[in-house]
Amino acid sequence: MEAITRYIATFKQMEVVTREEAIDGLSVVLNESGYVKETFLSAVLEREKVHPTGLPAAVGVAIPHTDTEHVLKPALAVGVLENPVPFQVMGNPEENVEVKIVFLLAMKEPQAQLDLLQKLMGLLQNEELLIQLSKSENLEQAKKIFSTIPIGE
């Protein structure tokens, strides 16, 4: 399996009502596994308010993240929401998007994680893979999908 999948720390199917719950549920795993500092969660939630990360891709997604200072090791936590929840749209906070997949990003050195970011973008542009991912049942299946993503154009 490709090196890219080493970043994927967790995959969760989640039943949540708010975006905060979704981010919290993923952040807990990153914190417990030593990827991020205690301050990570509140920093992500704060940043999401000011700079929302919802993206109206073929399947609604969000890529919450925050400053690198709150991160110990780079990681990606993937959450598939049983019932989509609204996130504000990146660059256009007056609008909401119903989000089905949350990619909580812990970035340490963005240039070093460019491959991860490019893969993520490739995924955002691939409806079929997004749908497959939203139907994944475990981390192994999710990793398999990530390893087949073409780099975004």
Partner: peptide, 8 residues
């Protein structure tokens, strides 16, 4: 943040 999406 000047980190994630701006890198892409």
């Amino acid at each position: 943040t000047g980190a994630a999406t701006s890198t892409i």
